[in-house]
């Protein structure tokens, strides 16, 4: 049995080509894939971090290309603890697709999911189409947290995931202290497992 205290599922969404896979790769493997990476067979990537002495494992799920035709399965969103919606600051189109993704989140993700809006590719300063304040306003409107990143230059990438790990851990600890306040899904402590008995994973 591996040694960690919490396991959280983080899912990435957003248009194709905004750099979702690169963000994960930068964070979990420490490199920026130069070409289009062969993502065959990759379901999720894992990174273990330490938060105030506790080992926390982030399981970061990628879309498996299903975002290309906006055909992401509902089950992808199930039991996600955190959700990162990515757009490309150099692509007006990827920004304009955000309402579609927000709609999907509202339909399929849990109400208590921690949501981040991320504007990626800030290294390409000359090509930028979406100013920071526009992204920030969008995030505020939909009660999401906001960050701009560059997977290429590793700007804010560490900060993004660490912040997610930190906040989810805080939530989980909070739930442990006050278990009676749990909703139908217990997000604390693990991959979310229904509060009921005899629920199992195969």
């Amino acid at each position: 049995m591996e040694d960690y205290k919490y396991l959280f599922k983080v899912v990435l969404i957003g248009n194709a080509g905004v750099g979702k896979t690169c963000l994960v790769s930068r964070y979990t493997k420490g490199f920026f894939p130069p070409g289009q990476m062969a993502t065959i067979g990759v379901d999720f990537m894992i990174k273990t971090v330490e938060i105030d002495g506790d080992k926390v494992k982030l399981q970061i799920w990628d879309t498996a290309g299903q975002e290309r035709f906006r055909s992401i399965t509902q089950s992808y969103y199930r039991s996600a603890n955190a959700l990162i919606l990515v757009y490309d600051v150099c692509s007006q189109q990827s920004y304009e697709s955000l309402p579609h993704w927000v709609h999907e989140i509202e339909l399929y993700a849990g109400t208590k999911v921690l949501a981040f809006l991320v504007g990626n590719k800030i290294d390409q300063t000359d090509k930028r189409e979406i100013p920071t304040h526009i992204g920030k306003e969008f995030a505020e409107r939909y009660e999401m947290r906001f960050l701009e990143t560059s997977a290429k230059e590793a700007d804010n990438v560490e900060k993004l995931f660490t912040s997610i790990a930190y906040q989810l851990t805080a939530q989980a600890r909070d739930l442990e202290l006050r278990p009676e306040q749990q909703g139908t899904v217990i997000t604390g402590g693990s991959t979310p497992i229904a509060s009921a008995p005899s629920c199992c994973k195969l």
Partner: peptide, 27 residues
């Protein structure tokens, strides 16, 4: 056993597997 969130999750799980291995999905 019964799948949490309903039996409709099962086909989606296999679609995800197919997509992970390069299957292209269009609804």
């Amino acid at each position: 056993l019964f799948p949490l969130y309903g039996s409709g999750e099962l086909p989606q799980g296999f679609c995800r597997l197919s997509a992970v291995f390069g299957g292209i999905y269009v609804l």
